[in-house]
Design a binder for these strands. Sequence first.
DNA 1: TGTCTGGCGTAC
DNA 2: GACGTACGCCAGACAT
Length: 924
Amino acid sequence: MTATPPLLLVDGSSYLYRAYHALPPLTTAAGEPTGAMRGVVMMLRNLVERFAPSHAAVVFDASGPTFRDALYPDYKAHRPPMPDDLRAQVEPLHAMVRALGLPLLAVPGVEADDVIGTLARDAAARGLAVVVATGDKDLAQLVDARITLLDTMKRNGEESVYDRAGVLAKFGVPPEAIVDLLALMGDSVDNIPGLPGVGPKTAARWLAEYGSLDALVANAGAIKGKAGDTLRAHLGQLPLARALATIRCDVPLEVGFDGLAYHGPERPALLALYRRYEFNSLLRELEAAPAPAPVAVDAAGGEAAAGDAVAVDATPADPPAKVRDYDVVVTAAAFAGWLARLEAAALFAFDTETTSLDYMQAEIVGVSFAVEPHRAAYVPLAHVYPAAPEQLDRAEVLAALRPLLEDPARAKVGQHLKYDWHVLRNHGVALAGIAHDTMLESYVLDSTATRHDMDSLAARYLGETTIHYEQVAGKGAKQIGFEQVPIDAAGEYAAEDADVTLRLHQALWPRLEAEPRLAALYRELEIPLVPVLARMEDAGVRIDPALLRRQSGEIAQRLLGLERQAHGLAGQPFNLGSPKQLQAILFDQLGLPVKKKTPTGQPSTDEEVLEELAAEFELPRVILEHRSLSKLRGTYTDKLPALVNPRTGRVHTSYHQAVASTGRLSSSDPNLQNIPVRTEEGRRIRQAFVAPPGTRIVAADYSQIELRIMAHLSGDERLRAAFAQGEDVHRATAAEVFGVPLERVGTDQRRAAKAINFGLIYGMSAFGLARQLGIGRGAAQEYVERYFARYPGVKAFMDRTRGEAAERGYVETVFGRRLYLPDIRSKNPARRAAAERTAINAPMQGTAADVIKRAMLAVDAWLQGGGAAARMIMQVHDELVFEVAADAVEAFVPRVRELMSAAAALSVPLDVDVGVGDNWEEAH
DNA sequence: TGTCTGGCGTAC
DNA sequence: GACGTACGCCAGACAT
């Protein structure tokens, strides 16, 4: 940050659209749309806090035509009118911007970009630093030594800052060539024609080579190839395209620089607006803030590091000291006081601090609590750094807390409580009464958000920057265990965690309650699943490390042989594991034909390409075998033994409940959901997942669950009948598509039908099907058409789903789980098509996830009630794996089949295949 | 030495 | 551009 506060220019229009498409369509209780407003207000608030600008402007497009329409009648001709639920937010947003104290500009006849350009250049000429906040890359042309571009609110929640070097890195050309770049590329959103087939890469390459559009045009005759022809054919349109892309920096403005002074928010107006549009967390924050809010912040941030305990890396943008009241509890009396508060509370937030992120090893270092906003306590219990002060005894404190923590009737809220469940379990405390988990609240509200960690949620829903773990414990090599963090810093951090968790819950829960189906999913499925998953993780699975090591050894031998063979064929040694080196050998040295390219333009060496080349050449065959074996060794046979917990002799995965946007679980460290099964070689790894003496492995998987769900969702009579009659669905599909009797279906026909069935679930096109089956596009198209003719209900379902997604902006599972699809209305056809495929797939994949989660609850309840001497140890999307006492297996199998089949009442039966064995491979 | 990205491959 | 959802390996580039 510069010493002098910068001029902050915000492209209000671009952010408004971005927020509208990126954020959930929130409304007030009365149904008025507010999501986009809220997104923009949050962003403005963060920008002001961060840059502490002395002058600022938020610029919007004015209504009516601009000079560009006069230049080019088709300008923005394809842009649909503003959606009603966005238009409704424009006026309220303007009011909020004004109440925030930010000068607002909307100048008729020009666009927001032109106003920003004019203001930016003017300020830069005065020697001021300028920050332009926008989602529109066209503004990159303004960047210079004083003007920087800031792109916040990206899909992944990160931001990008573009100075001159940044623009060059991002676009491949410097700011002054951006206009030329845009003229060549065109802009489909604005309907500016570019050169057909010329994208950012080609355009940047040309400009890098010739320096400017003028020089390129002058040398157009010298450009070779198809692109050169294209260029020569379209020379005439370039001047207009450039004029349209050029931002004007000479717009006459009524307001002068002094008129852009920023004096801070107008509190009463802002309070009224927040209240009117139900921005409750912002409202509470503003109400809690001392009035009037301090505006002038020393931009150099001199005082920031002087804070008492917290600041390891405090930035000037950290919120000013709020009314926060955090205790560090080190006396029996203080602890007794907090215990009493917890006992009196209807709900309390708690959090544990530990020695390790590995839930099986973590020991408690301290615990924190909150029962009301902004008031929290940290109880340090095992800090061990030199001269650490006296702390309460860990065992005694946990014993005192035990009745509360183990009481299912005492409601607790936490962030990712599954972890705390494990940590307490390590100290013999059985956590019960998990009433709420903010991570899951956030996930159920919007599963497409990339992160549901507390820091992200605090920023998103409270607009607050929290103390990050790295700030107190360091990171990388310098990271220390939490037990070594000084108690003062630990207290601020840990107490804040409990406080923020509580306040997040207060912000999130009303939103969930406002959506009854989501609330039910959260309350009845996700929350009860927490202890079930914790128990599965805690159980782990026994593996046979000696077997895996033997396999590693064998594979190593074979790899050596293959490597020698490959080097011989290549005529030189090279690293078979390096796609880059392999690419050089195959395509440069040996001159093999390039079959396809990677997204970065390199010749691909993936399996499909190598298979194709292997028909003619020997080396690719050797590489393929080497690849598959080194994958097995590197990912599985070498790694799994290292992950065996020495205490339990088993591997304990982590199931992630808030990662997959469709509602599935995911698994890591190790990932038990991608253990090989398709090849003979791979399946040997499953032999190392063994049943301990006296037990057996039982694997139960849903048969064709996603296709069954498709039958249910579509209601297609023919497909439902196939399942109802227990037919082999791929065979039945083949009979329909190829018009032959069931018993006459050939293997290739069944294989094709299977590919069609899977393709449908994934939204595959005829093109993809053709590639999958190695047939012509016409033939693939014909298959698809015959399929839809025979299963018209499926066709109707897909059309309906796409339409509904476009209309509502999200799709739902049978149980009401929601997945937002902001790209469904994208003007970019590729993004829109991808969103449509997700729209088709998500209800099926997500419903399957809901179903197996329900099954897990049912089976767990049965087992916890003493139903059988068995424990559930793994979940692999459509499969549950159990470790069952040998003498209990016979009774177990039919019961688990029954519970899983009954997990959902669909209009088709849910069949479950169950296998038993001494290891996972045998149980299939 | 650590961190990030690209290319690739495993599962359902 | 063309098949959805994940996790994780290795190589290589680059920052520390």
